[in-house]
Computed example of a mutant assay.
Amino acid sequence: MKRICSSSNETLLGLDTGEDCLAKPVQYAEYTIVFVEEGAGIFHADFGAFPFKGPVLLFSTPLQMIYIEQSAPSKLAMLQFHSDFYCIEYHKAQVACNGLLFNNIYIEPSVKLNDREARIFKNLLDELAEEFDVSGCDEIVMRGYLQLFLAKSSSIKTRSAANLPDPEERDEQMEAFRRLLDQHYLTLHKPADYAELLAMSPNNFTKRCTKYFKKSPSAMIQERLILEAKRQLHLTRRSIKEIAYSLQFSDEFYFSRFFKKFTKVSPQSFRQQTGISIVADLPR
Results as ranks from 00 to 15, higher is better:
N9D: 15
E10K: 02
E10T: 14
L12I: 05
D16E: 06
T17L: 14
T17A: 15
E19W: 08
C21Q: 12
L22P: 04
L22K: 04
K24Q: 14
V26S: 09
Q27W: 02
Y28A: 03
T32W: 03
I33G: 00
F35C: 04
F35K: 04
E38P: 03
G39Y: 13
G39P: 07
G41K: 07
I42E: 13
H44R: 13
H44Q: 08
A45Y: 11
A45P: 01
A45I: 15
D46P: 01
F47H: 09
G48D: 15
A49S: 14
L57P: 01
L58K: 00
S60H: 05
S60A: 15
P62A: 07
M65K: 12
I68Q: 06
E69C: 04
A72Q: 15
K75G: 05
L76F: 05
L76S: 00
A77G: 00
A77K: 13
M78T: 10
L79I: 02
Q80I: 09
F81K: 02
H82P: 00
S83H: 06
E89S: 10
E89L: 07
Y90R: 12
H91G: 01
H91R: 07
A96F: 07
N98W: 14
N98V: 10
L100P: 01
L101R: 01
F102S: 00
N104I: 02
I105T: 15
I107N: 13
E108D: 14
E108S: 07
E108K: 04
P109Y: 02
N114P: 09
D115E: 11
E117C: 01
F121L: 03
N123M: 10
N123E: 12
L125A: 12
D126E: 06
A129Y: 11
E130G: 06
E130T: 06
D133K: 11
D133P: 03
G136E: 13
C137G: 04
C137F: 08
E139R: 12
L146W: 01
L150R: 01
K152D: 06
K157G: 01
L164I: 11
P167Y: 03
E172L: 11
E172R: 07
E175D: 09
A176N: 11
A176S: 07
F177E: 02
R179K: 12
L180M: 09
L181Y: 06
L181T: 06
Q183G: 02
Y185R: 00
H189E: 08
P191R: 03
D193V: 00
A199G: 10
M200N: 07
S201I: 08
N203M: 06
N204H: 10
F205T: 03
T206D: 13
T206R: 05
K207A: 14
R208M: 10
T210I: 04
T210K: 10
T210W: 01
Y212N: 01
K215V: 13
K215E: 12
S216Y: 04
S216F: 08
S218I: 14
S218G: 04
A219L: 12
I221P: 00
R224E: 14
L227Y: 13
E228Y: 15
A229E: 08
R231D: 11
Q232P: 03
Q232N: 13
L235W: 12
T236P: 05
T236A: 07
K241T: 15
F249T: 06
F262A: 15
R271C: 02
Q273S: 09
Q273M: 14
Q273G: 03
S277A: 13
I278P: 01
D281S: 15
L282H: 11
R284P: 02
